[in-house]
Design a protein around this nucleic acid. Structure first.
Length: 564
RNA sequence: CGGGGCGUGGCGCAGUCUGGUAGCGCGCUUGCUUUGGGAGCAAGAUGUCGGAGGUUCAAAUCCUCUCGCCCCGACCA
């Protein structure tokens, strides 16, 4: 490709809308343009990257035996009523009516359609197992789209669905997909981690997320460096710290006017915040419930929800009614309500908590002696330094961008939609199902979050818009440069290298800046100076300085570099 | 959904408080010079100031309505 025949519209200035580095760079590099909130056009440069990501995904899915098909973007609402997701999905599901007033949705995923297909086509166990996938546009009407294509409303996802006669076979496919995803993200050149994930309302044992590691990630991941343990913080178990020490202090009420947070109370009393206990008041099924975590810990709402079922935070008025005090001074002593303590809190003695009286806290509080023994559960988020749940070392926390998710659906959809097959004995049984997603568009942004410097994007070779660029100095002026450049360009193209020749009539600085910005991994510069000695100058995108390479061996040199 | 902010040429912004000839930088066009890290000079083009209504001799500026976009929050005792 020659730049003069391509479309590069780089910008020095960034549109004010862009917040994170990948979004800024994608706009500046002219990979994408925003059309509407969370809706983007992929320009030719960005589209090349997108296609390369898709290609790797397809190759590995096909290699694993999955079969590509294409399901519609627009799906009948009727199917969604069958699966009950019409009601469960909420406002993120984009719905509309056609001219006959029939309900339709723009698909956020395709479980309904694939299950509909399966119940019509997969009548016999002899057809199983089978795994269908497609790479298709998705729409989720996000409450708040942001970060460019990282969290957009319209995006491209690879979603696959597998059908099995029994759970053992589903598990086999699930492990196979775990391996396949590992290969895909490895080939994409990304630093990633597979982590155990929450299975949400569906339950079941199997769900893993694949996260690209980046500080700007929206998810927190807990992992143990000494073992294989890795889990989304939403899920990571906070293990019990052991048995509770004996009480040594008497309970005492102390004035703490205006000190409503554990940090404030701890600093007033000159105690570590780890000696304090904080209360979270929630309403569940019309009942007032107090949840206690250590002062420096935070409540894990997902764990709490699993324990209690759906709940919401209590209002100030409800707290006043249940405890007779304001928020900020809540404690378990004398509280005639349901009390749930985190495992860590349960193992505390002589702790500090609210006195259920405005402006006062209690010190030297002990379970059993001063307050009724609470219900104990794991309801907090793990923090760095917590022991790993597998007993091997301590947890660390890193941030990640979720780019893949594999899931054992089991029979949720097949039962809801009556999708059954006949087994060897002629009995109708619902399919065991798995589903497997990869956020194709998000991967592009994630790769940039992981690979960039002040000059621009640094793409991994497999997904770079071009593998190599040639920057001639004086292409329009010097016949020698032009001749050598054209020859090299032809040779590289012949050798199957994805090469971009920057033949624009611009000053060299402009060409260098653009090639750096769009993230081409390898660069060859041809100028009269070097050509006189028979050399081209080679520089990898991450290198500070270039090195001379004999022009005669430049193709072989690059092929060797690209083969790595 | 709640809170905050912004809509002025393709992009980034000033001008709005205090009504009175619509401006700057980047980009774009043409010419000359320049040419190994985002050039210089000169000449140019591009605006229904998001939209509708109102107040006024006069509205980018004041008022009302409306549309769009961005950011923050939804962990709090």
């Amino acid at each position: 490709m020659k730049t003069s025949r391509f479309f590069i519209a780089t910008q020095k200035e960034v549109p004010a809308e862009a917040e994170i580095v990948s979004h800024r760079l994608m706009l500046r590099a002219s990979m994408i343009r925003r059309l509407s909130a969370g809706i983007y056009t992929w320009l030719p440069l960005g589209f090349r990257v997108l296609r390369k990501v898709e290609r790797i995904v397809r190759e590995e899915m096909n290699r694993a035996g999955a079969l590509e098909l294409l399901m519609p973007l627009v799906q009948p609402g009727e199917l969604w009523r069958e699966s009950r997701r019409w009601d469960e999905y909420g406002p993120e599901l984009l719905r509309f009516r056609d001219r006959h007033e029939r309900d339709f949705v723009i698909q956020p995923t395709s479980e309904e359609v694939i299950t509909e297909l399966a119940r019509g086509e997969l009548k016999s166990y002899r057809r199983l197992p089978v795994h269908f996938y497609h790479v298709q546009t998705k729409f989720r009407d996000e409450r708040r789209p942001r970060f460019g294509v990282m969290r957009s409303r319209e995006f491209i996802m690879k979603d696959g669905y597998s059908f099995h006669a029994d759970y053992a076979d589903l598990e086999r496919e699930y492990r196979s997909m775990h391996d396949t995803y590992t290969r895909i993200f490895t080939r994409l050149g990304l630093k990633f981690r597979a982590v155990a994930a929450d299975t949400g309302a569906i339950g079941g044992t199997g769900s893993h997320e694949f996260h690209v590691l980046a500080d700007s990630g929206e998810d927190a991941i807990a992992f143990a460096p000494q073992s294989d343990y890795a889990a989304n913080v939403e899920l990571a178990e906070a293990v019990s710290p052991g048995s509770r020490p004996a009480a040594r202090e008497p309970m005492k009420k102390v004035p703490t006017p205006g000190k409503t947070t554990c940090e404030d109370v701890a600093s007033l009393l000159e105690l570590p915040v780890q000696r304090t206990v904080k209360a979270v008041a929630v309403m569940h099924d019309g009942n007032f419930v107090l949840l206690f975590v250590r002062g420096d810990h935070t409540l894990n709402e997902i764990k709490a929800q699993k324990l209690l079922g759906p709940f919401r935070f209590a209002s100030d008025a409800e707290i006043q009614q249940a405890l007779g005090c304001k928020p900020g001074y809540i404690g378990p002593v004398g509280a005639k309500v349901r009390v749930i303590a985190d495992r860590t809190v349960c193992a505390m003695a002589d702790f500090v908590c609210g006195a259920n009286e405005e402006g006062h806290h209690l010190t030297g509080v002990n379970w059993g002696r001063d307050a009724a023994e609470p219900q104990v559960a794991d309801i907090r988020n793990v923090v760095a330094g917590d022991p790993s749940p597998d007993g091997k070392g301590k947890l660390q926390i890193v941030r990640g961008i979720e780019v893949g998710h594999i899931f054992q659906l089991r029979t949720k959809y097949s039962e809801a939609m009556g999708a059954t097959f006949l087994d060897e004995k002629g009995a109708a049984r619902p399919f065991e199902m798995g589903c497997y997603g990869i956020g194709v568009t998000r991967i592009v942004a994630a790769a940039i979050e992981q690979g960039h410097d002040p000059r621009g994007i640094i793409f991994p070779v497999p997904i770079a818009p071009f593998e190599v660029c040639i920057v001639p100095i004086g292409y329009q002026k010097s016949a020698a440069v032009r001749q050598a450049t054209d020859k090299l360009y032809d040779e590289l193209a012949q050798a199957g290298v994805d090469v971009l020749l920057d033949d624009r009539e611009e000053r060299p600085g402009v060409l260098f800046a653009d090639m750096d910005l769009i993230g081409v991994p390898h660069r060859l510069v041809l100028g009269e100076r070097g050509l006189a000695a028979g050399n081209a100058e080679y520089k990898a995108r991450r290198d500070e300085k270039g090195t001379d390479v004999p022009l005669a061996s430049a193709v072989a040199f690059l092929r060797e570099r690209l083969a790595r």
